[in-house]
Write a protein that binds this DNA or RNA. Structure first.
Length: 591
RNA sequence: GGGGACGUAGCGAAGUGGUUUAACGCGUCGGCCUGUCACGCCGAAGAUCGCGGGUUCAAAUCCCGUCGUCCUCGCCA
């Protein structure tokens, strides 16, 4: 170690200091984590980004430093010079990374004082989230939050490294762009120069990345901020970050494998091993078996179709539903026969949330079947039910009769609820899979028109193109979602690169020629000038980091997130603006 | 737009089928302490119980309204 440390603000990070430094002088800087005053001996824990080191101030070493140490309080920022020494044998702290050594502090300078913080700066701080968000800069000092920031940084770096090595270019696209129909509600920005006109913030760089393919970029990526003005959830923020990727001369299988390789690299950051060649299941299989297009396959309890049992049933409710395009589906809870009536009522509340009218149940016990509706069913129906669900003694069968979507999605949520409640999900498993063959469209009854399942630029599967005219709802998309533990972490597709097909899809979506020309004319035109076949994907960066860090809330992996009302408790955004600002924009409020 | 939970010192919380001096822990402040690391010991301060209204002899507690935070349905191509 060189000797002239005196003039340096800092010679070492806390975490670097270890037994090899014993006898050396160091200068550290950091925050006062904790002060333990023993009268004529004061221990101070100094925290920096790397970790914590204990400094001892002893009157007999420096009276002056000791007096300053006596006045230190939590979160003061200090510079300390000291000599590294081994701790006495019986005072080694094995809980602490630097627990074998300590600094003998002989000089100290207070770089900044601090008010007493409104909550303790430590992990597991039991504090309301609103207070954490108001004092986010203090919250981020907690090791847990610091580590989340670091993990996100590493994920971004790994992504850039991987894609750069694979010949992708990182290209920026506009934040001020134009509003387009379809999709989420836009965030709008008024234009001062163009009276009465508005920019929209991008919901994703979708159109631009396609234009970059037309531009000959061939392989593009961007760590892109996206904006959607919809209601918030634990895993949804109005602005979030996508790893956005697009390539020309797209070959779906090859591309999907490359993305698996990238994900493998990224998850190595969390010491999570990822096996390539993810399972692929179709959208239909996912909905049939799990009632979700992003199934959690870490446990079984698959949903079964029981409709055919009840086509002739004396139980009117089931028979009528089955014979009117509805369905009866159910799942089995192993060992659930002893659920109390109250517990089952709670399960019924779960399915009711998702539109089911009720939850039928059958408990199979030593004394036979217990169920409020057993008396309406024949022995044959009950035995078929047992057979289909592979029921054994002490099992509980839960059934929902409704239209297909209500039935499977309500049971799908019930399945997740039970999986969590019964502890069927092992937290150390990482089940990656692709969901493929999404429908290209779904039907919106309210507006009486087709809507894109994914987005209007998604290509139909080649073999289904012929169905577009007569049976559009059965056209499958060349689209794929990557799912991890029941969470959609990415999704993409092959895109339409022929104008005629793109125009046809717009027509099917009831987007008029005039509107298509106005809103998407630039894309259509680009398709006229030699746009190569292309496709891509976008991953939810925040969700990936959320899983890597084991957080339950997306807010814990965003440095400065918004609260549920899309506001910042820190900056108080959104805020009011002055009359003159509004005037410049030719805006009048009407509230 | 709908459903639900919560709101009591700086922080976390007990008390809420009517009457208490409104617990307790952490933190803060003062004193003592040479081996602590959840330091210890002694002492102290700190709360008009989110806000407004109502019922009552009496309200943190019951009722109505309102504000805030979170979860959720719808919504999120």
């Amino acid at each position: 170690m060189e000797s002239n440390v005196i003039n340096k603000l800092r010679s070492n990070k806390n975490a670097e200091i270890n037994k090899d430094f014993i006898g050396e002088k160091v200068v550290i800087c950091g925050w006062v984590q904790k002060r333990r005053d023993h009268g004529s001996l004061i221990f101070i824990d100094i925290r920096d980004r790397s970790g914590i080191v204990q400094v001892v101030f002893d009157q007999s070493i420096s009276e002056e430093a000791f007096e300053i140490a006596d006045r230190l309080r939590s979160e003061y920022v200090v510079k300390i010079e000291g000599k590294v020494r081994a701790r006495p044998n019986d005072n080694i702290n094995p809980e602490m990374a630097t627990g074998e050594i300590e600094l003998e502090g002989y000089d100290i300078e207070v770089l900044a004082e601090s008010e007493t913080p409104p909550f303790l700066i430590e992990d597991n701080a039991d504090v309301g989230e609103d207070l954490r968000l108001e004092y986010r800069y203090l919250d981020l000092r907690r090791p847990e939050m610091r580590d989340a920031l670091k993990t996100k940084h590493l994920v971004m770096q790994k992504t850039r490294q991987f894609l750069t090595k694979r010949d992708y270019w990182e290209v920026e696209t506009p934040i001020l762009t134009r509003s387009t129909p379809e999709g989420a509600r836009d965030y709008l920005v008024p234009s001062r120069v163009n009276k009465g006109k508005f920019y929209a913030l991008p919901q994703s760089p979708q159109l631009f990345k396609q234009l970059l393919m037309s531009s000959g970029v061939e392989k593009y990526f961007q760590i892109a901020r996206c904006f959607r003005d919809e209601d918030l959830r634990a895993n949804r923020q109005p602005e979030f970050t996508q790893i956005d990727i697009e390539i020309s001369f797209f070959e779906q299988d090859k591309f999907m494998l490359e993305m698996e390789e990238m994900i493998k690299d990224i998850f190595a950051i969390g010491d999570i091993e990822v096996d390539l060649n993810f399972d692929r299941i179709t959208y239909k299989e996912a909905m049939d078996n799990y009632g979700s297009d992003s199934p959690d396959t870490r446990f079984g309890m698959k949903i079964k179709d029981l409709s055919e049992i009840f086509t002739e049933s004396k139980f009117n409710v089931f028979r009528n539903i089955v014979n009117n395009d509805g369905t009866v589906r159910g799942l089995k809870v192993s060992g659930g026969a002893d659920f109390s009536r109250g517990q089952i009522d709670k399960l019924e509340d779960v399915v009711k949330t998702y539109g089911a009218k009720g939850l039928a149940w059958f408990a199979f016990t030593d004394e036979g079947v217990k169920s409020p509706i057993a008396k309406f069913l024949s022995e044959e129906e009950i035995s078929k039910l047992k057979e289909k669900l592979e029921v054994e003694n002490n099992d509980l069968a839960l059934l929902v009769a409704a239209d297909y979507k209500t039935s499977v999605t309500s049971l799908g949520h019930l399945r997740l609820h039970l999986g969590e409640k019964l502890n069927l999900i092992s937290e150390d498993r990482f089940d990656f899979l692709w969901v493929v063959d999404f429908p290209l469209f779904h039907y919106n009854d309210e507006e009486d028109r087709l809507e894109s399942e994914h987005h209007p630029f998604t290509a139909p599967k080649v073999e289904d193109i012929d169905l577009l005219d007569d049976d559009p709802l059965n056209v499958r998309a060349a689209a794929y979602d990557m799912v991890l533990n029941g969470e959609e972490i990415g999704g993409g597709s092959k895109r339409i690169h022929r104008r005629s097909l793109q125009e046809k899809v717009f027509r099917l979506l009831k987007i008029s020629k005039a509107e298509a020309d106005e809103k998407f004319g630039f894309l259509l035109k680009a398709l006229d000038y030699g746009t190569p076949p292309h496709g891509g994907v976008a991953f939810g960066l925040d969700r990936i980091v959320m899983i890597l860090t084991g957080k339950d809330s997306i807010r814990d992996v965003i440095a400065f997130p918004k609260n549920q009302k899309a506001g910042s408790l820190l900056t108080k955004a959104p805020g009011e603006v002055s009359k003159s600002q509004l005037d410049e924009l030719n805006l009048k409020l009407d509230i």
